[in-house]
């Protein structure tokens, strides 16, 4: 009996406050069977099944990805389109499970992926704040407290009861950022969102992220703007075709990436 109890109690590693690892990816791989041409009609599916023509391609999106992030650290992820950057963020969030390898994440995660993707454009800003707030895990009480600060941050006081279909794309992005950023998470994942909105709002976003960093929030930022990565992150991970090319000091990695991109042209 004693043994069983022992088994279910794996020895926890003890970390000191400073070097506590909050995200750890070990040999993560992601692949899925992609039909050469996407079949999404039954007729096609059966026709091809009979003809034996369902070609299934194994597509490797990520291969052997290992890196870790310590508490309070900010890490940038750079690489060309389709390198697998967003997939990594989705794996850390838990939206998709990797086909191999292990993922360890400690603390609450707030994903800022593709702002506004979850909005219902028929509904008003107020209704969207309520629904998206619930999805991010706010309780009714928390949302009531945060509601005015969200609206204020987005600068949409006058438009709060207007359906989103009448909003400009910049307004939508502002609303999305304002809702997501108010979570005060342990870990913040930022995907390409700093490139939307006007200059004014971009500055506001960067400031907000810096403010969170000072509070000790761990950040992972995906961006095509190397300046931003250099400014906001201490370290950077460079990914190409689903594999890590280099990990290290953000300035150094960004410079190498810049040279590589230019040499390819």
């Amino acid at each position: 009996m004693e043994e069983i109890v022992n088994d279910s109690l794996p020895v926890e590693e003890i970390h000191t406050e400073e070097d506590q690892t909050v995200i750890e990816l070990t040999n993560v791989a992601m692949e899925y069977f992609m039909q050469a041409e996407k079949v999404d009609s039954l007729k096609e599916f059966f026709v091809r099944l009979v003809k034996g023509k369902i070609k299934r391609q194994k597509k490797k999106i990520l291969q052997d990805i290992s890196f870790s992030v310590k508490k309070g650290e900010s890490v940038g992820i750079i690489g060309h389109n389709g390198a697998g950057k967003s997939t990594i963020l989705k794996i850390i969030t838990g939206i998709i499970k990797p086909t191999a390898g292990s993922v360890m994440v400690k603390g609450s995660v707030a994903p800022l992926l593709n702002l506004g993707a979850g909005f219902d454009y028929e509904a008003t800003a107020r209704e969207n704040i309520h629904l998206n707030g619930a999805i991010l895990g706010y309780t009714k009480k928390e949302l009531k407290e945060k509601f005015s600060s969200i609206v204020e941050f987005a600068g949409l006081e006058e438009y709060i009861d207007v359906p989103l279909k009448n909003f400009s794309s910049g307004m939508v992005a502002r609303l999305g950022f304002a809702i997501a950023i108010d979570v005060e998470p342990d870990i913040l994942l930022v995907d390409e969102i700093l490139s939307v909105g006007d200059e004014n709002f971009r500055v506001k976003c960067s400031q907000k992220i810096e403010e969170l960093q000072r509070k000790g929030v761990t950040c992972i930022i995906v961006s095509h703007s190397l300046q931003q990565i250099k400014k906001l992150c201490q370290r950077a991970v460079w990914i190409e075709k689903g594999e890590i090319v280099a990990v290290g000091d953000s300035g150094e990695i960004c410079d190498r990436y810049y040279e590589y991109s230019n040499s390819k042209k």
């Binding site: 969030t93 838990g94 939206i95 995660v109 994903p111 992926l113 593709n114 993707a117 979850g118 909005f119 999805i135 991010l136």
Partner: peptide, 11 residues
């Protein structure tokens, strides 16, 4: 219909 919500959030 809600793909925007479920591909971007853990839900």
């Amino acid at each position: 219909y809600n793909r925007g919500l479920l591909t971007k959030n853990k839900i």
